[in-house]
């Protein structure tokens, strides 16, 4: 399995209600947008398919052709964050030539390799820093799903702060459980999972959840960096930290819908690098700073610095 999740801040000044999320995500007529309200508001579009016939990146540089469909969806979490997620299950083809399109349509979300390929070679290729330009581009497909939501005229385009989208590329191969997460430049993250059942339907949801929390952490780090607490006047820094309190702190809800059998992946990432540990430390820093700033204002002391 390979996939890419793009995560970004919804281009709207405030949180959007479930009813608007439902409207934005109605990408297929006759198909329901699923809406979860607990433990956090989450709405997800119906799945859509995109046909592909192209090279698959491989670590060895071998030329591998894949034909089939990419399965994608868009989602809105907490009325605030938008995600576009695409995935394919790569399987060995039944033939060494391209078949009629109806063959691939009977296997939604599957890309068949025409010829031979090794799973590890393809997983390595997909998580390369820069896969060849002509190879399968799940990022572009996911980006279009984010764009469809972001371009809605129903959004006021006045986001409370600017934050780049993150690109979370993942692969899941069969084998002894193993988790490898890497932060790369340009807001790219790669996750290589080895699981006893890499084709379980919950794997993509797990990766979407990890991508969401990685975005939250990245955004909070960035907001704190921009606010420069300790370097600028307290009220000013507090004002710059306020969007974090207003818009993202309440969105941290690890593994909200992750299947029990995959919880160990989250747990291992909590151990190292320790997502929640870092998040909690940043949250405390933000709250402490704002509290001190408020106390200072109440005490009539507007001096700068800590």
């Amino acid at each position: 399995m390979v996939g890419e999740v793009q995560t970004g801040l919804l281009q709207n000044s405030g949180e959007i209600p479930d009813s608007l999320s439902t409207e934005l995500l109605a990408l297929v007529r006759g198909e329901r947008v699923r809406v979860f309200r607990r433990p956090i508001a989450y709405a997800v579009s119906p799945d859509r398919l995109t046909g592909v016939d192209c090279h698959l990146a491989s670590a060895s540089g071998a030329r591998v052709r894949g034909v089939g469909t990419v399965l994608s969806r868009a989602s809105v979490t907490g009325g605030r964050l938008v995600q576009g997620s695409s995935q394919v299950r790569v399987t060995r083809g039944t033939s060494n030539r391209r078949l009629a399109w109806s063959h691939y349509m009977a296997r939604p979300g599957v890309v068949e390799v025409v010829g031979k390929a090794r799973a590890a070679d393809l997983a390595g290729g997909f998580t390369l820093d820069a896969p060849p330009a002509e190879s399968l581009d799940l990022g572009a497909v996911s980006a279009r799903f984010v764009d469809v939501v972001q371009s809605s005229a129903r959004l006021d385009r006045r986001a409370p702060f600017r934050m780049a989208r993150t690109r979370f590329r993942w692969t899941a191969e069969p084998g002894e459980p193993d988790v490898r997460l890497q932060l790369r430049g340009d807001n790219v993250r790669t996750l290589r999972l080895t699981l006893p059942d890499p084709f379980a339907p919950g794997v993509a949801e797990l990766c979407e959840d990890l991508a969401l929390h990685d975005w939250l952490l990245t955004a909070l780090i960035e907001i704190v960096r921009r606010a420069r607490p300790g370097s600028v006047a307290r009220p000013e820094a507090a004002a710059r930290l306020a969007p974090a309190i207003d818009h993202i702190l309440h969105l941290w809800m690890p593994a909200a819908r992750v299947q029990d059998s995959l919880l160990h992946v989250w747990e291992s990432l909590e151990h190292r690098p320790g997502f929640t540990r870092q998040w909690q430390s940043l949250v405390n820093r933000v709250r402490d700073h704002v509290t001190v700033a408020l106390l200072t204002v109440a005490g009539g002391d507007g001096r700068s610095g800590d």
Partner: peptide, 26 residues
């Protein structure tokens, strides 16, 4: 109140020519 043809329209997935890697819309 239902338009079956529109249900089908939204479910079309174009048969991709060689070289279609998802980077551009179909």
């Amino acid at each position: 109140g239902v338009e079956p043809a529109k249900l089908v329209e939204d479910r079309l997935v174009a048969d991709p020519p060689v070289g279609t890697n998802g980077s551009r819309p179909p």
